[in-house]
């Protein structure tokens, strides 16, 4: 089944999944296109290793797309994807502790253009060089602060304040009581406030 990729961009997740269920390869690719950056960003911030994050994100998509026939449209597709991605990251963290933090481009990038294309995307296009530098520093500060949080706090705060998910969605995704999610997020914010205040005071 062939569908024009351009026409897919206006469709909802549910509609794209319906086309994927009918066997449209373009629909599969559209689902990857929509979620590759948010999923990769979440996993990267959780495991803090680009190569590993790419492997875990890849496994997430393979799991999701190979099971797309079983997807139930009454649930949010994005919640399903994030739930599997977060589980993959948490499972990995439980097995192993990683302390490296890379803000560079993809390890697969073998040309300067590819390194630039796959590195951190900071700020809007057209910003002045000074703003870009400031944003890069800001990005580094927040990344370091996030990386110091406990993994459970980290996934909650990333899903809430970076991915914009509601408390209820996060509770559903992480199989946690709503009150626990709220507590984790507020404790994480508390820790971030302290870390950022210390950075500003330096």
């Amino acid at each position: 089944m062939t569908v024009r990729p351009g026409s897919l961009r206006e469709k909802t997740d549910q509609e794209v999944v319906a086309l994927a269920k009918e066997g449209s390869e373009e629909a599969y690719r559209e689902l990857i296109r929509r979620y590759e950056r948010p999923v990769f960003s979440l996993v990267f911030r959780m495991v803090r290793n680009r190569e590993l994050a790419e492997d875990l994100s890849q496994e997430t998509f393979i799991k999701v797309l190979n099971a797309v026939q079983t997807y139930r449209p009454e649930f949010k597709f994005s919640s399903w994807v994030f739930k599997i991605a977060n589980n993959a990251a948490i499972d990995h963290l439980r097995k192993r502790e990683l302390d490296t933090l890379s803000l560079e481009g993809s390890p697969h990038a073998d040309t300067p253009e590819l390194v630039e294309a796959t590195a951190l995307q900071i700020g809007e296009r057209g910003e002045s060089q000074l703003q870009e530098v400031e944003n890069r520093e800001l990005g580094g500060t927040i990344e370091r602060a996030i990386s110091r949080l406990r993994p459970e706090y980290r996934s909650c705060i990333l899903l809430r304040h970076v991915e914009g998910r509601t408390y209820e969605e996060i509770a559903e995704m992480l199989n946690l009581p709503l009150g626990t999610v709220k507590t984790y997020i507020h404790r994480a914010r508390n820790e971030l406030r302290i870390l950022l205040r210390d950075v500003r005071d330096e």
Partner: peptide, 19 residues
């Protein structure tokens, strides 16, 4: 700051490897 946190891009062949 969290709202402005940058998004990361996987490598260019990411989608092909999944497909």
């Amino acid at each position: 700051m969290l709202g402005r946190a940058p998004s990361y891009a996987p490598s260019a062949e990411f989608a092909d490897r999944i497909m």
